[in-house]
């Protein structure tokens, strides 16, 4: 059985690209081509996503329909916000490749690099 994370991602892809709310059955059918899953498996994955606040559930007739709580862009923005927010030395949860220079620093650096290049050539 595939990992939950993968299935969650696949379900979210479907929900995000669907113009209307989806039922578990619709999601199962849409996924059937790539990965045939039991109804209960899809149900479990979607319940988990609803519990995590990623999907909103609404009863409609006999079945529940699900839609994304946020757009993909909003979700991305919030994950990135968290990653980029605590870059300073006060948080060591993750390490960034580089910290931004301001205009002045960048110009000074480029000038210094150019000087060194010239010096090496001569």
């Amino acid at each position: 059985m595939a990992k939950f994370g993968e299935l969650e991602s696949a379900v979210m892809d479907l929900v995000w690209s669907s113009p209307e709310p989806l039922t578990v059955r619709r999601v199962m059918e849409a996924m059937a081509a790539d990965r045939p899953l039991a109804y209960t498996t899809v149900q479990t994955v979607m319940d988990r996503l609803a519990r995590k606040g990623q999907l909103l559930r609404r009863p409609e007739g006999k079945a529940n329909t699900y839609r994304a709580a946020r757009t993909r862009e909003d979700h991305t923005a919030s994950v990135m916000q968290e990653a980029l927010h605590g870059v300073s030395d006060t948080q060591a949860a993750l390490l960034h490749f580089v910290e931004l220079m301001d205009e002045e620093q960048e110009q000074a650096l480029r000038a210094a690099l150019a000087r060194r290049k010239r010096a090496r050539r001569s």
């Binding site: 990135m80 916000q81 980029l84 927010h85 870059v87 300073s88 960034h96 490749f97 580089v98 910290e99 931004l100 220079m101 301001d102 205009e103 620093q105 960048e106 000074a108 650096l109 480029r110």
Partner: peptide, 24 residues
């Protein structure tokens, strides 16, 4: 080059701390 490209200002990265002295 990677450092210069990703550390350059104006990369429109709101939230990414400006602490360029380390990058320099």
């Amino acid at each position: 080059t990677a450092l210069l490209r990703l550390g350059a200002p104006g990369a429109a990265t709101p939230g990414l701390a400006v602490n360029g002295s380390r990058t320099v």
